[in-house]
């Protein structure tokens, strides 16, 4: 029998994560242009708009993401453009609207994920974001529950660790904040055994904190 999977949207995923104290960039759902502009005003410009649809897997590739929108006019225009390009890329996709979130400053991009292993249950994964994880598979694993020390080892184990440790005069990213985030994610997946898969991609790591910019949970 095939297990039916349910993919939570970014808005739903982040709500669950935030409730358990995992730092996320809050994303609020706007069902139309007017709502998008109102939320953007509330959050403060610049903002990011992303398509919210359970059927859209590659949000960026389908033109479903717009960054750095500095005022209401741009938010309004971006809303229409996102909807039309996603409808073209995914005809028939169920579209709930767009998510509106703060445009956070750039940090070192990392990913934190969880998948289930047939023998060991939930396995946490850590890696640098982007090409390093996709091409070089430069990632580390630990099974839940992940202790603070395990998390520290996961972070320092990857080959790309120097990038986090202050590459070329950059201020180092906070390993403590990342450790804390990994431990919280581990606790979160242990508490919610119905979660089959989880991706925080990317997480932005800063010198003093780390925050999940995008998130996806599969039940």
């Amino acid at each position: 029998m095939m297990k039916t999977q349910k993919v939570l949207t970014e808005v739903e995923s982040k709500e669950l994560l935030a409730k358990d104290g995992i730092p996320v960039v809050e994303a609020r759902l706007a069902r139309n242009k007017k709502e998008a502009i109102a939320i953007a005003r509330e959050i403060g410009f610049p903002v990011v708009l992303k398509i919210v649809s359970p059927d859209v897997v590659h949000k960026t590739d389908s033109g479903g993401v717009r960054l750095g929108l500095a005022n209401a006019t741009r938010v309004g225009r971006a809303y229409s453009e996102i909807l039309s390009s996603v409808r073209q890329a995914y005809p028939g996709a169920r579209i709930q609207g767009v998510s509106v979130q703060q445009m956070v400053p750039p940090g070192v991009e990392v990913i934190v994920g969880m998948s289930k292993d047939v023998q060991f249950g939930p396995v946490l994964m850590f890696g640098l974001g982007g090409i390093l994880v996709e091409v070089l598979k430069d990632v580390s694993f630990r099974i839940a529950p992940v202790s603070k020390r395990d998390a520290g080892e996961m972070i320092r184990e990857i080959k790309g660790y120097p990038v986090l440790d202050g590459y070329r005069g950059q201020e180092p990213a906070s390993v403590t904040a990342l450790e804390d985030l990994i431990v919280r994610v581990s606790e979160f997946v242990e508490k919610n055994p119905q979660i089959e898969e989880l991706d925080l991609n990317p997480v932005f790591a800063y010198p003093d904190r780390a925050v999940a910019v995008d998130a996806r949970i599969i039940l």
């Binding site: 292993d117 047939v118 060991f120 099974i143």
Partner: peptide, 14 residues
């Protein structure tokens, strides 16, 4: 049953 080698390595280290 098989788990991936990276998971086994992680489990042993952990």
């Amino acid at each position: 049953l098989a788990s991936s080698p990276s998971v086994w390595s992680a489990v042993l280290k952990q």
